[in-house]
């Protein structure tokens, strides 16, 4: 009887059919599909480092980026038994990385230090007129964008970066951040509006 049950393909039936399958078998199959933390690290540590660095911005200390990357994989280790494989591992990792960064960004003092660091970097960069090389003017422009982005709240900024820079869809971001898709759109709208206002103000400042 047990053998017969195992032969019923879940995909052909509704939930009542899949419930006939031995749950132990399903669990074993899921575990076989689930990568280990080390595999995830080998495959995606670059992606995680990139997304953490991007979400923090260039004003963050390199040691903070490193610490958060480690923290993400420690969280992954704890959360792996609950990973159902419904989403791609990278989307799942994006979610953990984004939430870890958001928690890190909660402190006002930390935010102020990141902004201060960005502004010092702006001061240090050669101006486009002094050094008209493309790289110098590009870095100046990028710093200006980051200074504007830092005026956008962290929650909105994370959605903006995931959507506009990392290219995730609204649905993927909703899944990653465990929020409603409508909330993603609202945050994206406000992030664009706030960023535009900040950029306009910076443009007007000599």
């Amino acid at each position: 009887m047990m053998r017969m049950r195992l032969l019923i393909p879940c995909a052909l039936g509704g939930p009542w059919l899949s419930s006939l399958v031995d749950p132990g078998v399903r669990e074993r199959a899921r575990l076989e599909r689930t990568p280990t933390v080390e595999e995830l690290f080998r495959r995606h540590s670059d992606d995680v480092r990139r997304i953490v660095a991007r979400l923090l911005g260039p004003g963050a200390a390199p040691s903070d980026v490193e610490d958060l990357v480690q923290q993400v994989f420690v969280v992954v280790h704890g959360a792996l038994p609950r990973f159902r494989g419904d989403s791609k591992p990278i989307t799942w990792l994006y979610g953990i990385a984004s939430r870890t960064v958001l928690t890190h960004l909660r402190g006002r003092r930390r935010h102020r230090k990141m902004v201060a660091s960005l502004e010092v970097m702006t001061d240090l960069l050669p101006t486009a007129t002094e050094h008209p090389e493309t790289e110098a003017s590009r870095r100046q422009a990028l710093n200006r964008v980051w200074r504007a982005l830092m005026t956008v709240s962290a929650k909105k900024r994370v959605v903006f970066i995931l959507y506009e820079v990392e290219g995730l869809t609204g649905r993927e971001i909703a899944e990653a951040l465990q929020i409603k898709e409508a909330t993603v759109h609202t945050r994206l709208y406000h992030a664009r509006r706030d960023l535009d206002a900040a950029l306009a103000t910076l443009e007007a400042t000599p």
Partner: peptide, 18 residues
């Protein structure tokens, strides 16, 4: 403004040191 910001952010790939 927004398009230029997006392009600058996309082109800036933070270094991931192997």
């Amino acid at each position: 403004r927004l398009e230029s910001a997006r392009r600058l952010l996309m082109d800036d790939v933070p270094l991931a040191s192997r």
